[in-house]
Structure formats: C-alpha cells, structure tokens
Design a protein around this nucleic acid. Structure first.
Ligand code: FES
Ligand code: FES
Lengths: 132, 132
DNA sequence: CATTTTCCTACCTTGTCAATAGGTTGGAAA
DNA sequence: TTTCCAACCTATTGACAAGGTAGGAAAATG
C-alpha cells in the first residue's frame, strides 16, 4: 500500500475545507463529522498539516481551520509528502544518497527510480482544485 | 511502501535464473547465496512462484529451479502480483467490486484509479529480459 | 541407502497503522 | 470575568503485516 488512511483522510479534509468560502474558519468537529473521520484521529492528521504551514488554526469560540493558500496551489502530492512517512515504491529509494549496498550493481534500481518519478509527477500535477 | 522485500527478492531471483542457460536447473542454495538472500526466506518466496506456475522445481540431487517461460515473456508486474498481497496504491481499490462505502460520491477515487493504472501498466510493460 | 534438494507447517520478533484517551492552553463571546 | 469552545499536546493501545527462522518430511539421484 502506497497511501495509508492518514494521507487519504488528509486529502479529504483539505478538500472539504476548499469547498467552503475562502477564509472561513471551520472547526475540526464539523470537518470530521462531514468526512466521517474520528475527531481524535483527525486531530493528529491536521496537526501535521498545520505544522507544514498548509493550514492555519485558531482556538477559541468561532475558531477553526482554514487553508493558507488557494486550492489550485495545493497539490495532492504535497499533502501526501506531509502526511505519509514515505511515498517511494521501494525502500531502496528512501535514504538519500541511496544507501542500499546493492545500488551500484543493481539491475532493478533504474526501474524503481522511473516508477517513483512516474508516481510523484502524477500526484504533484493534481491540485485540490482539480478534484473539487 | 508499494513493494516489499518479498516482491523485490522475487524479481532478483527470477533475474538470476534468467541469466543462466535456458533449462538449466539451479538450486536455491546457490541462488540465495548469489543474491544474498537467506535460504529460508527465499524458500517461502520461491514457493509462491512455483505455485503460480512461473518456476518449476525438482527435488533431489542435481535438482533445482528453472523458468517455465522465456525471460521476455515474464513481466515484473506479474511477479509482483504473485508475491505482494496488493499492488494497489490505496485500500479502496483492493476489493472488487469496489466496497468502499464512499465510492459513489468520492471525489478522489478517479484519481486513485488513474494512478493504479499508471503504475500497473508501467510494471507490466517491463520484462525480465529488459532488465538483464 | 545416503545425500541432496525441494516442499510443508509453524513460529517469532519488530514495527507501523489506525485509533483512543485525557488533559492543557488560548481565545471569544456572554 | 466567567464560561465555553476549540485547537493543541502527549501518551497508550490493539491489530496486523513485514521480515525472517526453525525443523522436519518427501522425493529424486547416484
Ligand atoms: S536492491 Fe536496493 S537498489 Fe536494488
Ligand atoms: S475514500 Fe474509499 S473510494 Fe474514496
């Protein structure tokens, strides 16, 4: 599995936010209800997005989250890089510079690199605006 | 991670076999030494390939494994489908017909389907002969 | 018969995924 | 200024898969 629930939920939360009026703050309890994600789990996911600067949260009454950018400037790939530990199709690609001992003579490495490229360029080419 | 060690080791074992004379039987102890894979682990992997009909094994002295097909007729994707539980990038795609409750209204599903297509057509387009 | 090699079944250890739980801090409205 | 709301922070849990071991049984050969 390349993309876990964390990443998928993150996309859906951002998607939900992008469907609201620009700048409007939405509470997580509302977001999680709409998207049928447990509030507590959603908290841990949203925390990552805030830390990465993609969302901005405000506490207190009438608080909530909103996007810091327009939906057409947020790519799916970006969200996944933030929420998933790795997007690579194989472990050999994860440590840079490539640490795999076999790398120099490995006959399959070029294939994995191409696949990685294929996947990432696709995911980075799609924006949240494209999905809505 | 899309592809685990099981799948990667399987590819390397088939690759090693394909570099031998056609029809020659090679023992797993030799294969595993060459590819630096533990014999015991390799056994479990090779068992899958035999069951799928890709390899054919013979016991006893001078026994071993050999490919049942030419290397240019074996695709990487085929090996991975056999050895990995799933090649799909997301769980939503794994059960057919699609079981995810959100499927009908899901805004991201088409994206995952395209990605899945992209990945699979790439992996099925590469043969073992291409790699050697 | 002894050796080699595949084949079969079960087990183990580690780590990640997915989710929960409980509390603390900050802000706004009443 | 009190009250409430909502974000924030820090564990902890249960389930499951990844990755690998272990021991032996069955077949083929010489
Ligand atoms: S096995 Fe790691 S680079 Fe090929
Ligand atoms: S969340 Fe499962 S199909 Fe979109």
């Amino acid at each position: 599995m390349l993309v876990s629930t964390r990443g998928r939920y993150a996309i859906r939360i951002v998607l939900e936010l992008s469907s609201r009026e620009k700048g409007e703050r939405v509470s997580l309890s509302e977001l999680s209800k709409k998207q049928e994600i447990s509030l507590k789990y959603a908290e841990t996911i949203v925390a990552l997005l805030v830390k990465a600067g993609l969302l901005d949260g405000q506490r207190g009454k009438r608080g909530g989250y909103r996007l810091t950018r327009d939906a057409n400037e947020i790519s799916v790939g970006e969200i996944l890089i933030i929420t998933e530990d790795s997007l690579s199709p194989v472990a050999c690609l994860d440590c840079k510079p490539n640490q795999c001992e076999r790398a120099s003579s490995c006959k399959t490495l070029p294939m994995w690199e191409k696949l990685d490229d294929l996947i990432k360029s696709y995911l980075f080419s799609i924006t949240i605006a494209d999905l809505n």
